[in-house]
Design a protein around this nucleic acid. Structure first.
Length: 325
DNA sequence: AACGCGACCTGCGAGC
DNA sequence: TGCTCGCAGGTCGCGT
């Protein structure tokens, strides 16, 4: 579930099912899904078994579960007096292009692409297993350490552990929905880049959470072409495209994310329906909706850019000339 | 230092 | 029917 809204749908879904529960056993059915855990499957399982899940935190498209290393170590809900030393490790997840995190009862047959199974301590009315399913294996799980954040703010969206972030997510910028996202610092860095606007929007170190779909949607809403040079971009234009990204991702979140097929589902296996609201992505040769409202005939164009497809309206998102508008 | 490309994977639909 | 090709929501590492 690759972009921010889809990952956030998973995070929200997961919180109520796993927070406070203990991981009792781990099955790795395909070691490729934990290849970023360099010490291998046995070490991976050993780190998780007996650990208690404190929360589910997201930064950009990275998701992690801070862990209390023993089951009886107090968690965030146990009151200030019982607060433990901060958690030091976390179970990290990235969904890549096709990863899913699913809560399943034990009697549900294994999915075709089931890669990792976590069994959780029993809890009333809750599924016993957290499953990582991944067709293309671009995603994966691994255990990592928590390190201080660069700006001293919260690590990501989620409630604990405030100033700490999973190490492999520490180079990822805040996303436009993060309350600590700073437009000023984004814009300052944007102007120093010598690249095109879409490439910058997809650079997770500059602003995170935006992928190919929402980049095209944000550019369409802001009436900007993907090749607009970043070093001459006016503040008002940068603000417009960032606001557009925030809006479109919030709308998508409210719709449960974008699903074209069963690959993109929430933790209960349900699809989102934002695909019906897309204005640019996937609309090759279809009439631009905004131009149609203005009585202008204009067909959306698909072009190869960065080895992937980009969709633009040739009328309301004209290609820049000479590095200027 | 930062940009931009290829690699990492499986499966599906289109076209022959 | 079955082959090949192009395509798919992402990230990382290398060469320039």
């Amino acid at each position: 579930m690759p972009e921010l809204p889809e990952v956030e749908v998973v995070r929200r879904g997961l919180v109520s099912w796993v927070r406070g529960r203990t991981i009792t056993s781990v099955d790795v059915m395909d070691p490729r899904s934990i290849r970023r855990h360099l010490l291998g499957a046995e070490d991976f399982a050993g780190n998780l078994e007996g650990a208690r899940v404190l929360d589910v935190v997201r930064r950009g498209k990275f998701l992690w579960l801070p862990l209390a290393e023993t089951a009886d170590e107090p968690g965030p809900g146990d009151g200030p007096a019982a607060r433990p030393s901060r958690p030091r490790v976390a179970l990290m997840a990235h969904l890549g292009m096709s990863g899913q995190l699913l809560m399943q009862d034990s009697d549900v047959p294994d999915e075709k692409h089931l890669k990792v199974r976590l069994r959780l301590s029993p809890a009333d009315g809750m599924p016993e297993q957290l499953r990582f399913v991944d067709q293309r294996i671009f995603g994966g799980l691994f255990v990592t350490t928590l390190v201080p954040t660069a700006d001293g703010g919260p690590g990501g969206l989620g409630e604990t552990p405030a100033p700490f972030i999973a190490e492999e997510a520490s180079h990822i910028a805040r996303d436009p929905l993060d309350p600590h996202f700073s437009f000023d610092s984004f814009y300052r860095r944007l102007r120093t880049r010598k690249t095109g606007l879409k490439r910058a929007l997809l650079d997770q170190g500059l602003v995170s959470g935006i992928g190919n779909i929402y980049a095209d949607e944000a550019l369409w809403r802001a009436r900007l072409h993907y090749a607009r040079p970043t070093d001459t971009l006016r503040r008002a234009d940068a603000l417009r495209v960032l606001d557009a990204a925030r809006e479109v991702m919030l709308d998508a979140l409210a719709a449960g994310g974008t699903s074209f097929d069963s690959l993109y589902v929430n933790v209960n296996g349900a699809s989102g329906y934002f695909d019906r609201s897309l204005n640019a992505y996937g609309r090759e040769n279809q009439q631009c909706k905004r131009c149609a409202d203005a009585g202008i005939v204009s067909l959306m164009k698909r072009e190869q850019f960065m080895n992937r497809s980009s969709y633009t309206c040739p009328v309301c998102q004209p290609r820049p000339r000479n590095g200027r508008w």
